[in-house]
Design a protein around this nucleic acid. Structure first.
Lengths: 401, 401
DNA sequence: CCATATAGTTCAGATTGAAAACTAATTGGA
DNA sequence: TCCAATTAGTTTTCAATCTGAACTATATGG
């Protein structure tokens, strides 16, 4: 396939090289590369890099951070980094809480806040209003730290149409085809607010800020079972944008019917609700039930043990099928599954070994370390990445303003 | 993601535009576009297109095919097409036959030959020798038609390492880690011979020459059950290159063990052998058994009917899971499944509706019309595509020679 | 036979990175 | 202390390539 963004005119070369340099700075991260190092890394000449960096510094995306010597001879280089005075606000609506965070271009979470909020069944307008209040806090915090906010990312637990900012289906919130107006959360931010799926954002957070490998499947165990597929360091969304719905892979054709209308889905065996029920945890608040389950497991309660083993076994079936179909070589467990990680692991690995022996190295089955901030980081990171990938457009806009 | 293969020199613009123009000619196909139409289609100026086309014509990749008037006023354009005097040889090793074909750059199958050959268990060297004889026929036929052979594609029913030309695993041939030397089949062809997987090649054949949509899952029912995933008009191979192994998706966690070492795989329910056995077809040659099965189905034999229904049902489970994970919206059934198509369809659709209601429109479940030539076309097409995507390298080589 | 329309070419102009020469800033040793 | 060596970054010249506008070529229709 011919890359539509590839240079067609001479001017496009610069577009691409601006992005390449910016990406190289982002990848080098804390090492704060000099122009000379960037030249070596990108294959461009020092002259070209100097010219490109000049534009990036002028736009405010990149900052010089003083000299930098490594003990050797020669003139020291000027360290460069993605500006810590520009940032993006990450936001998250989940079933039982709202959260916001300020992430600077370098990927540092500079501010973080969350509130409990039983959003299930609430009107989207009500939830958006509450989230707006939280976003205002984040904006104030950013202003106090001298961070100019370029845009925002909003993650929700459901399928979304990113272009039109519509939540197509979020069964756990009881939302269906709800158009949101995320832009209103950050009035005046030049890049607007991007709506995204919670599991996908968490997968991207893991990739960019959690040390995830270039190829992995992220399994999100929030109230539902979601997934995010990362291939070659990019989110794989599929032709219609809804890939990664791991929760509705069929793991047992004779299984019970599922909220999605199907039958035998993974979620009916390994969703939070299914596990709690099988473990005999009484209804109640999510946090409390999770605590009860962990307590039961610690006390070697056989019913809890079996519930988690079953979930692990079926998760193994889903991962075996996924690995076969998509050639997945690594898996990161997040959310609920990260909390249950060590209890899930034995049954999961046994099941994988039974259904796809040798396909997935147990070492490559890891638990997410980012906990809940992964989703925020990923939601904000998508906007940051869009700047890194198309800085030219951003420069133009900056020049006009 | 930033394309690492495209350092940003000014000269790369031309590289890209050569490819873009060539691709545009290939896509327009039989319409034989003029330079002016290409300019309109690519967004380049007429001047640029003229210059690019001049290089392509000089290299022999593109040919002018006389004037062309559409009744309107004005000077008529020069029709352009991919040269019919340049071609690629497609080759196929399957369990019970060998096949070759000459495909010109325009995708026309100009010569075709196949021989029965019980390759299961034969030494690769023996098989390659037989294939070499067939390839020689193809070369002679190409020479007779004045087609210069640029390279070849060889498809085998197993996992391959394309870079090193090694068949990693072809259980149905009983080959394991067999290095081949496909280059030797076409001594002197400038682009060499590319080894590929049979199901993937068939999927690409369907995409390029069978009118397949931009996004679909090709299901190959040869002796094993294979698959090829096409996303955005490209083959999705996954990080390790072995994506699409539909045959080893788990469709029933309590199912029997499989030749792959796993258990409950689709292949154990819907592989040819499994269907024949369940239908009570006695052992024998593949072709004969297939005929017997079809005859039994036509006579409404209940055992045959049930065997095919079961296969369809489990195929539906696998497709439901695949659609969920990869957001697949269309499926093309090939090989054995295309032959059984109408008998499979009812149970398959019912199963899809049960496990993933509404996810896949029945209209988007189609049967391949290319039959066995799809694999040849796809195998050859991969080499043709590589020229379309990197004509600059080809031009350089042509200029040196 | 000429106005009109479309195809394709020619040429000046602008953008851009490569290459090489240059300036700047540092270290280590004479 | 000072200079050679070394590395960073800038300036200058040059070649590649596309755009845009003017131009030539070739058809149709009245």
């Amino acid at each position: 396939m011919i890359d539509a963004t590839a240079p067609g005119r001479v001017g496009d070369v610069r577009r691409r090289n601006l992005s390449r340099v910016l990406d190289s700075i982002a990848k080098t991260g804390d090492a704060k590369p000099s122009r000379a190092q960037l030249a070596a890394g990108t294959g461009l000449t020092k002259a070209a890099v100097s010219s490109l960096v000049a534009d990036l510094v002028e736009s405010g995306l990149v900052a010089e951070v003083g000299l930098y010597r490594d003990g050797e001879r020669g003139r020291p280089g000027q360290g460069l980094e993605l500006s810590s005075r520009r940032g993006v606000i990450g936001m998250e609506i989940n079933v039982d809480y709202l959260a916001v965070g300020v992430v600077d271009l370098g990927g540092n979470l500079r501010f973080h806040a969350s509130v409990e909020s039983p959003n299930r069944g609430l009107e989207p307008a009500t939830v958006m209003e509450r989230l707006g209040a939280l976003a205002a806090e984040a904006k104030a915090a950013a202003a106090a730290e001298g961070i100019a906010i370029l845009g925002g990312g909003l993650a929700v637990p459901g399928l979304v149409d990113e272009q039109r900012s519509v939540v197509l289906s979020a069964p756990n919130l009881h939302w269906e085809n709800e158009p949101l107006n995320p832009r209103a959360l950050l009035e005046g931010a030049p890049l607007g607010v991007r709506l995204s799926n919670e599991a996908n954002s968490a997968a991207l957070g893991e990739l960019w800020y959690g040390g995830g490998p270039a190829d992995f499947l992220y399994v999100s165990g929030e109230v539902g079972v979601g997934g995010g597929v990362i291939i070659a360091s990019e989110l794989y969304t599929g032709p219609g944008g809804s890939a990664g719905e791991l929760g509705h892979i069929v793991v047992n054709p004779d299984g019970p019917s599922c909220s999605c209308g199907g039958a035998g889905c993974l979620e009916t065996f390994a969703g939070q609700e299914a596990i709690f029920e099988a473990a005999g945890i009484p209804p109640g608040a999510l946090e409390e039930r999770a605590e009860l389950l962990l307590a039961a497991l610690r006390q070697r309660d056989p019913q809890a043990r079996k519930a988690v083993d079953d979930a692990g076994r079926y998760l193994g079936v889903a991962l075996a099928s996924s690995a076969r179909l998509m050639d997945i070589e690594a898996v990161v467990l997040g959310g609920h599954f990260a909390v249950l990680g060590e209890w899930l692991r034995p049954a999961l690995l046994a099941s994988l070994e039974r259904h796809a022996p040798g396909l997935l190295d147990p070492e490559n089955l890891t638990l997410s370390g980012l906990e809940h901030s992964g989703t925020l980081l990923g939601a904000a990171g998508q906007v940051i990445r869009s700047v890194i990938e198309s800085p030219f457009e951003f420069l133009l806009a900056a020049k006009l303003a």
